[in-house]
Amino acid sequence: MSKAAPSVPDTPQPEDASIEDRLYTVKYKDSGESHLGIEVPGICAETCTTYECTNVCPADVWRAEEGGVPTIAYENCLECGSCRFACPHGNVEWEYPTTGNGVSYKHG
């Protein structure tokens, strides 16, 4: 007796999927607390003019706001760490979410 193949949800094909479609395949288990932050908000507001953290993030987690201090939508984070390396002031707080939380990928 043959076993039925498990049901697999539709997944965007890489050759025609938008970034938004690809990000939709990433699951995030929210711990309720952000694993991202800004060490000294004044540095962003008074010193930063290029906002690399907002430009480098592939998931649009960091968003520039009026007043110069970015807002952070940590629930969308892919945990790539690009933001901490991109900040020329070393002003990004970044750590992995607590055990059992964070991003999980469907493929790869």
Rank of each mutant, 00 (worst) to 15 (best):
T71A: 10
A73T: 13
E75I: 11
N76W: 14
N91T: 00
E79Y: 10
A86C: 06
C80Q: 07
Y96K: 14
A86Y: 05
R84Q: 12
Y74L: 05
V92D: 03
C87P: 00
G102H: 05
E95A: 13
G102F: 03
H89P: 03
P97H: 07
C80K: 08
G102W: 04
Y96E: 15
T71V: 09
T99V: 15
G81R: 04
R84H: 14
L78M: 11
I72L: 03
N76T: 11
T71E: 10
G90Y: 00
G102Y: 04
E93I: 14
E75V: 14
T98P: 15
H89E: 10
N101I: 07
I72Q: 01
E75S: 14
E93L: 15
Y74S: 06
N101D: 12
L78S: 03
T99D: 15
R84N: 11
A86H: 06
A86T: 04
P97G: 09
E79I: 09
P97D: 06
C87L: 01
L78I: 06
C87A: 01
N91Q: 05
T99M: 13
E95M: 11
G102E: 05
N101W: 10
H89L: 01
P70T: 08
Y96P: 12
V92I: 14
N76Q: 10
C87E: 02
C83V: 02
C77G: 09
G100R: 09
I72N: 00
C80H: 09
P88E: 04
H89S: 08
A86M: 05
Y96T: 12
A73M: 11
T98D: 11
N91S: 02
T98E: 13
E75K: 13
P88Q: 07
T98C: 12
S82W: 12
T98F: 12
N91H: 03
C83H: 00
Y74N: 07
T71K: 13
G102S: 07
V92F: 02
S82M: 13
N76P: 07
T71G: 05
C87S: 00
C83E: 02
W94K: 08
E93M: 12
I72T: 03
F85W: 11
E95R: 15
A86V: 04
E75A: 14
V92G: 02
C77R: 08
Y74R: 07
W94N: 06
V92E: 01
E79Q: 15
Y96I: 11
N91F: 00
T99H: 13
W94Q: 08
T71F: 00
C77N: 09
C77V: 07
E95S: 15
C80S: 08
R84I: 14
I72C: 00
G102N: 07
C87Q: 01
G81Q: 03
